[in-house]
Design a protein around this nucleic acid. Sequence first.
DNA 1: TCCAGTGGTTGCATAATGCAACTAGGCTTG
DNA 2: CAAGCCTAGTTGCATTATGCAACCACTGGA
Lengths: 157, 157
Amino acid sequence: MVKRTSFEGDSCPIARSLEAIGDWWSMLIIREALFGTRRFGEFQTKLGMAKNILAVRLRSLVDHGILKTVPASDGSAYQEYVLTPKGRGVHPILVALRQWSEEFDEHPEEIATILVDREKGRPVKKLEMRAEDGRLLTQGETMVKLRPVKARRRVSG
Amino acid sequence: MVKRTSFEGDSCPIARSLEAIGDWWSMLIIREALFGTRRFGEFQTKLGMAKNILAVRLRSLVDHGILKTVPASDGSAYQEYVLTPKGRGVHPILVALRQWSEEFDEHPEEIATILVDREKGRPVKKLEMRAEDGRLLTQGETMVKLRPVKARRRVSG
DNA sequence: TCCAGTGGTTGCATAATGCAACTAGGCTTG
DNA sequence: CAAGCCTAGTTGCATTATGCAACCACTGGA
């Protein structure tokens, strides 16, 4: 069985995220959903992707609790795909991806859009990583630590 | 020619990022590199991935200016792969992915590590999105706007 | 010079992706 | 209420990507 490596059950949280949304289309589907896209055909036209792939991806996102299906808002018998809180929680990841392009892309002039503060219409600042006490942190000022294991009922013995 | 869709030249900055680092392994390779991994064999063992795939990914990351090869630091004739500034710039994306798992994963107890402030050893706060003037922004308080086109030399005429 | 270790490449099998054609209900209109 | 056009998929087939294992060239040490 030579299948694409799965990160399900992997203990790294980054790998676990990628397991759910780490493919080419899922992020873009979520981006569209954040813009308000809800219908199958709408996703298909806007993203210009094959319908079979879209169907598979939507099913997977629903299975992962990122989208859920609801009756269409226009009263028709069709259904719509809307983001769950977990799905909306992807937003910071998309912002980080966007800002990385803005900062490092070789052809920034080809980038069509910018993310702005709705109230003022001014660009959003770079995402900031802060310590518990509010200090601004750089990557070097952080480290990864083993998660303390919570007290746990003994399984046997 | 039925090849995997490329987002190169796409005007969406998210798609542009995904074009470079949006596949299963690239993010994990960068994660390892941020942890200090530099050698081919080291990546291969730690990530447990096939060597041919690793070779292709490393080449691609070098081509994208995310990694660069340097002579081995131990004086041997081998080379090492180290992150460029563009590569280190991926860090916020990884933090966002990590925090998304921490917040929404169905089995958070399976997550082995947490990101902490090196000085205090305390967990890092959630990434914050702020307006130019420092106001904390939620997703709904932002929007995407067409990038103002800079004055540009006319190409012909 | 022998021989293990490093850093790959190659061959082959399987899975994922993409396009196009097809289909099953829903909706609309006469 | 039947004909026919949408919507939301599914299916078939071709191509590409991924994965394992075997192989190979070069390094470095004894």
